[in-house]
Amino acid sequence: MKSAVIVFPAANCDRDAQTALTQMTGKAPHMVWHQDSELPDVDLVVLPGGFSYGDYLRCGAMANQSNIMGAIKTHADKGGAVLGICNGFQVLTEAGLLPGALMRNAGLKFLCKPVALTVEETQSSFTRKYDKGQEIHIPIAHGEGNYYADENTLDRLEGEGRVVFRYRDNPNGSARDIAGILNEKRNVLGLMPHPERVVDDALGGIDGRGIFQSLIEALS
């Protein structure tokens, strides 16, 4: 599986994603600068976590204006896989590649801790190696992870099996405990927790491996 990680100024988890992808796929991902306008030939594009553009205006809003976004939209339109982690999820909602928006945590505090999630959906390239209903533990690190969408959109997401991960103990006020969702074509996943931080036992867990193993199986 060939992958690329987009490098935005102040998105500080790009190297975590790079390390996890290298470790999991055996191949270093392309690191693509946000001002580039073309993507290399890859199967997967990762929008990493962090605070692109200092979260100015709204989290993800400025990153969505980057040159590279056009190429990412084209990649997604053609069915290419896109994974948005944390700030990457926020960018994908701003870009309209995923519905809804990420708002300030209900408790107003920045939260940085491991959380328990339920894998709700295994019919996707991102989650096929998990079991449906499986409990996994993945860290979160965000101030704006409170998922919002109108009721119709939420019903639609649930009805179409696009709510992929749910918090077991909702930390941020997200509608219907949503931690991660798919787009309609199921090739774009956004999630607030950081799976790239839990692929190595030395770092406290390996529950994030399933996403990368699923992608490798689906895309290789």
């Binding site: 205006l57 809003a61 519905p99 809804g100 928006a101 708002m103 919002y148 969408a149």
Partner: peptide, 8 residues
């Protein structure tokens, strides 16, 4: 295009 996120 930018100043507001009209979803919210």
């Amino acid at each position: 295009k930018l100043l507001a996120n009209t979803v919210i």
